[in-house]
Design a protein around this nucleic acid. Structure first.
Lengths: 109, 109
DNA sequence: GTCACACTTGCATATACCTGCAAATATCAA
DNA sequence: TTGATATTTGCAGGTATATGCAAGTGTGAC
């Protein structure tokens, strides 16, 4: 009997081990990926208004995209007064990327 | 239709390297991510029939998912007779992951 | 040839997603 | 308080995606 891996039917990210499809899905949208690149370019926590210029979509859409990125663990959000500063969560991103690269490493051994 | 991002942001957009949303989008589906994990688990080029058992979806759907993974540069496909062997493209995957980790590295400097 | 096998593709349906605009919320300034 | 700023959220539209089933293509076995 062949061994099997857990089946990804339910909304249970833990079944993938460290692999969470929501992380990759969040990066799979061109606007969100551009936002990530732009946040890296700015190199500091930035507001919705500041990053809105990069993608040609309404700032309300940018706000929604940043929320998705936050829920995926890609950015952090910190409110300061009426502004919300979004910043890349490098540790979590790196961790998620390792989840994939690790299973590749097991391949080559 | 391949979607791309054009990043109109910094003085030098080329510094962001090659970030392709289609790569991440392909991994953003739970079934496809499970297929990738299962291919890694099997550790060898495998057929549609062989991997169909892992995800609870019809094999026609698996065939479509593998096509998307192939177009995203995540797997390779090699026909042998009536079988098609799919295998992870570790080099391309690693390359795409570096596209993201590189912009993070520039961040911490 | 005839048949079974492995896979792909067409079709229809249901669901999820992205978008802009407008309205709502919250905070700060005067 | 009044008004401007910053962001979020509700709504409606159009589009994209995932899925199963059935039919089609191509290959190998007999």
């Amino acid at each position: 009997m062949a061994r099997t891996i857990s089946i990804p039917l339910g909304p249970d990210p833990a079944q993938f081990g460290e692999l969470n499809p929501d992380f990759f899905k969040a990066l799979g949208d061109p606007v969100r990926l551009a936002l990530v690149a732009y946040l890296a370019h700015l190199g500091k926590p930035s507001t919705v208004t500041e990053v809105s210029g990069c993608c040609g979509v309404d700032f309300s859409g940018v706000s929604r995209h940043l929320k998705i990125l936050r829920e995926a663990g890609i950015v952090t959000a910190e409110k300061q007064g009426r502004k919300t500063y979004y910043a890349l969560d490098a540790d979590k991103i790196t961790s998620s990327l390792h989840g994939l690269s690790d299973i590749l490493e097991a391949l080559s051994k």
